[in-house]
């Protein structure tokens, strides 16, 4: 065997080990969702059990645990978040990129400053504000703030700077297009890869978000998946069922996996975005 082959073999071994490391938690999750609570407590097993259907039934039938409702709620919040975050971020980025106006730099700096403030700092104020607006225990506060997403905005701006030549916008103006038409017919299609990437990221983070929903949501019918999972985990000693917990987590990650698979080509492209100017 020559050196190149050995080298290659080593690479593969490292990569396979890394993949196993990544995929092992998924495997654990799937295996455990097919086993009973007592089996799980005895320790880990590589073979699947026979409790898949029972666990599934337990999770879906539970009265105080409206899983289907939770999935729907999570889906509404996550979709609305990603649509609002991407559309309005592109809009903001477009204005900063294209127009010259007074205090432009100031606005930009202000947006960047917001990016530095962690969610937790403003959470209390946000909660009180929502209380005053009578929006406590509603889904709206979970997705509406996505309109102002500084990180998404910054990504869009960076993508625009390398992919949206100003001359093209000017050409469209001379051709007779209105500003809004330019945005919808020229800018949005060109921004598609960036929008796809940010839509996925926003979707996933909204899907996984536990912090804000736990502050806002009270009633059972409005609970999102992360809250349900937490609720299940903190159940009292008699009701505690690890099989159910694993099953619920398993259900929770299915939509994300599907979305990742569908949009994976955009993610790869999106990560490379901005590195090469075409």
């Amino acid at each position: 065997m020559d050196l190149r082959k050995i080298n290659r073999l080593l690479c593969y071994i490292v990569l396979i080990l890394l993949s196993i490391l990544c995929l092992f938690s998924f495997y654990l999750l799937i295996v455990n969702s097919t086993r009973a609570h007592s089996q799980i407590q005895k320790g880990f097993s590589f073979t699947t059990g026979s409790f898949f259907k029972i666990n599934l039934k337990n999770v879906l039938d539970s009265e105080e645990l409206p899983v289907v409702n939770g999935i729907i709620n999570s889906f509404i919040v996550s979709s609305a978040s990603s649509i609002l975050a991407t559309y309005f971020s592109v809009l903001t980025a477009f204005s900063i990129h294209t127009y010259e106006f007074k205090f432009k730099r100031l606005f930009f700096t202000f947006i960047m400053m917001i990016m530095m403030v962690p969610n937790q700092v403003s959470a209390l104020g946000f909660m009180r504000w929502m209380g005053k607006l009578d929006l406590m225990d509603s889904l709206i506060p979970l997705f509406l703030p996505s309109i102002a997403s500084p990180i998404v905005f910054y990504f869009m701006l960076a993508y625009m700077q390398s992919n949206l030549p100003k001359a093209m916008i000017e050409a469209a103006r001379i051709d007779g297009a209105s500003e809004f038409r330019i945005f919808n017919q020229m800018v949005l299609p060109i921004m598609k890869p960036a929008i796809a990437v940010q839509a996925i990221f926003t979707f996933v983070s909204a899907w996984n978000n536990y912090f804000i929903p736990s502050l806002i949501i009270r009633s059972t019918k409005n609970k999102t998946l992360p809250i349900l999972i937490a609720q299940l985990r903190s159940a009292d000693f008699l009701k505690f069922d690890m099989g159910k917990v694993y099953m619920l987590i398993f259900l929770a990650i299915i939509p994300i996996i599907i979305i990742y698979i569908i949009l994976s080509k955009y993610i790869v492209r999106g990560v490379a975005v901005g590195s090469v100017k075409e």
């Binding site: 030549p165 000017e170 103006r173 299609p189």
Partner: peptide
């Protein structure tokens, strides 16, 4: 406005609509 001046312009980097 540019669109009402009835002029056409050719740009250095062509500025075609890529999509």
């Amino acid at each position: 406005l540019p669109k009402d001046r009835d002029i056409a312009m050719v740009f250095q980097n062509y500025a075609l609509y890529p999509h």
